[in-house]
Simulated assay, not measured.
Amino acid sequence: MSNAEISPRKIIQQERPTPDELVPSRYAVQVGEIEVVVISDGMLTPPAESMATNANPAERGAWLDERFLSKEAFDWALNAVVVRSGDQTILIDSGIGEEYPDFPRAGQFGHRLEAAGVDLESVTDVVLTHMHFDHVGGLLVEGVKERMRADLRVHVSAAEAKFWKSPDFSLTAMPPALADLARKASLEFMDMFGSHLRTFDEQSEVAPGVVVARTGGHTPGHSVVRISSRGERLMFGGDALFPVSFDHPEWHNGFEHDPEEATRVRLRLMKELAETGSWLVSTHMPFPSVGRVAAAGDLYRWVPAWWDY
C-alpha cells in the first residue's frame, strides 16, 4: 500500500455516549502494522496573541478574522496519542490533567482514554515530546501512577530532563502564572516518575518502527516521534507545528523557549513531511489532527485527511 492509500479509520463511539462525549474524541490510523489512536484532551484557550507574539497586531487580527476566530482567546486543540506496536502500548504525552480554572474545557484525557479501551495497566512506555504542563499533566492526576506498571519506561530527551532542573523562561511570552505552573508540573513529574526515565541524546527506538528524536526549538529537548511500518509513515509533531505555522512559520509562539530555533525546526519538519508524504499528527492542530503537508510556493499548506466513517 502506498502512502496515498493509507486510510484513517474512526473508532466507533460508545453505544450510549454521555453528554460530554457527544463530540468525537478519538480517531485511529493504521500505519502498516502499527495502530495509532489520537485522543482529545479537550481544548485550551490561551490569549490569542500568544500564537504570534512577534506579529503585527493588525496582521494577526486579519488572520484570525479570515477564519472567524476570536481575537481574544484562541482555541487550541489538545491531542495525545496511543501507539500499539507489537506487544508494546506507548502513550505519547498525556494532556493537561486536572481541570485548571483558566482551561475548563481541557482535562478530558483520563475518561477518554478509558472510553477508547486503553487501560493504564497496559501502557508499557510513555514518550514525552517535552515537559510543559499540558503534556505531562495527565500523568500527575491522583491515582494514575498507582495504576501503571512497575516496569514502566518513560522516554524523554536528556536535554529536556536537564533543562527543567533550572528552566529559563526569558525568551518566552508565557504569563507568570503559566510559567509557575510549568515549573511546578515538571518538578512534580520528575519527583513522581524520575526513577522510570530512559533518556536519550538525539534519538531512540522505543519499539519496532517507533523512533523518538530530539528537535529542540520549542524547548531545548523538544522531540517528535516518527512511526513507520511497511513503507507507511506518520509523525507526531508535538508542539513543533501549530495551525498558524503554515501561513506564517516566522511567527513566534509565546510558549517557545527559543523562538528563532523553533522557526527553523518547523520549516525543516514541514519540508521533510512534504517530501516524504508522511501523515502528521500534532498536539495543537484541530482534532483529529490527521493530515499531510504539501509545498505551496515558498511555504507549505496543511491538507487534513478526509474522515473515514
Rank of each mutant, 00 (worst) to 15 (best):
L128K: 06
S122D: 15
G117Q: 13
F103E: 08
R112L: 06
F133W: 11
T124I: 07
T129A: 15
F133S: 07
Q108L: 09
T129V: 14
L128M: 14
P101N: 12
M131V: 02
T129H: 12
D119N: 12
L113R: 01
E121T: 11
F109D: 01
A106T: 03
F103I: 10
T129Y: 07
E121G: 15
E114V: 05
F103W: 03
L128H: 14
G110N: 10
H132I: 13
H130D: 14
A116D: 03
P104V: 08
F109C: 05
A115L: 11
F109K: 03
F133L: 02
V118A: 11
A106E: 06
H132V: 14
M131G: 10
P104C: 07
M131L: 15
F109T: 07
G110P: 00
A106P: 08
G107A: 04
S122P: 06
D119W: 08
D102H: 13
D102L: 13
L113F: 02
Q108R: 12
A106F: 08
R112M: 09
M131R: 03
D125L: 02
P104D: 04
F109S: 06
Q108A: 03
R105H: 15
A116W: 06
T129R: 09
R112D: 04
H132A: 10
L120D: 01
G110C: 08
M131S: 13
T124W: 06
V123E: 04
Q108F: 10
S122Y: 01
V126F: 12
T129F: 09
V123K: 11
P104A: 03
V118M: 10
